[in-house]
């Protein structure tokens, strides 16, 4: 049923076909986070893979940024309804991180953990095969702190809350455990094309 008097501003066809349901296109880059930017120092920054509480491998900033580089360009979609087209990222793919650690993923699920104590769950299958990276650069420059720099997870085919800012590590879990938002009613998977915003969507 339509809303009385609402016609809307339907975007052009070329825009619409790139917009998942319920999204609108924005040209700016909104910032969403649960608290202040954490204060990080590259001299003490580290990135750690864990299985449960057991560390598997850690990298310093110097070691991490010496890993093979990956680039990805495309559209990102935030659960707060904005989408941004043609964003350009560079970092280290999940595949290359695992390869440098010399391991295969020990479980099928993980939680990305941020320096701000934020967490979010992502299936391993959504990171392998070039689908996810830990990004250090946005639009050709180091990622600004407001957007999760020095390093953030990038899983662009899921709603952007999955792309944890200020990522400090990935923790493999035996089962699919909800993170910060998932424990607060947001969808466990978060596919924008199926509009999986909240539990049950």
């Amino acid at each position: 049923m339509s809303t009385r008097g609402f016609t809307g501003r339907k975007p052009p066809e070329a825009t619409r076909e790139r917009l998942p349901p319920g999204q609108y296109l924005t040209e700016d880059f909104p910032v969403l986070q649960i608290g202040p930017n954490p204060r990080l120092d590259l001299d003490t920054w580290s990135f750690t893979l864990r299985e449960g509480s057991r560390p598997l491998k850690s990298w310093t900033w110097e070691a991490f940024t010496a890993l093979p580089r990956t680039r990805w360009s495309g559209d990102i979609h935030c659960v707060t309804k904005w989408s941004k087209f043609d964003t350009a990222w560079e970092g280290v793919s999940f595949d290359d991180i695992l390869a440098d650690a010399g391991i295969a993923a020990p479980t099928a699920f993980l939680l990305a953990e941020g320096y701000d104590d934020y967490t979010t769950n992502v299936p391993v299958g959504d990171l392998v095969g070039g689908k996810g990276m830990v990004a250090t650069h946005y639009d050709g420059a180091p990622i600004p702190a407001d957007h999760g720099g020095p390093a953030r997870l990038l899983v662009p085919h899921l709603y952007f809350w999955k792309s944890a800012k200020w990522v400090k590590g990935l923790r493999f879990t035996q089962r699919d455990e909800g993170g910060f938002w998932e424990l607060r009613g947001y969808h466990m998977y978060g596919d924008p094309w199926r509009e999986q915003r909240f539990t049950g969507d």
Binding site: E182, L183, R184, G185, F198, T199, G200, D201
Partner: peptide
């Protein structure tokens, strides 16, 4: 924290 199991 109570996981919201019900659809919205």
């Amino acid at each position: 924290i109570e996981p919201t199991a019900r659809p919205l």
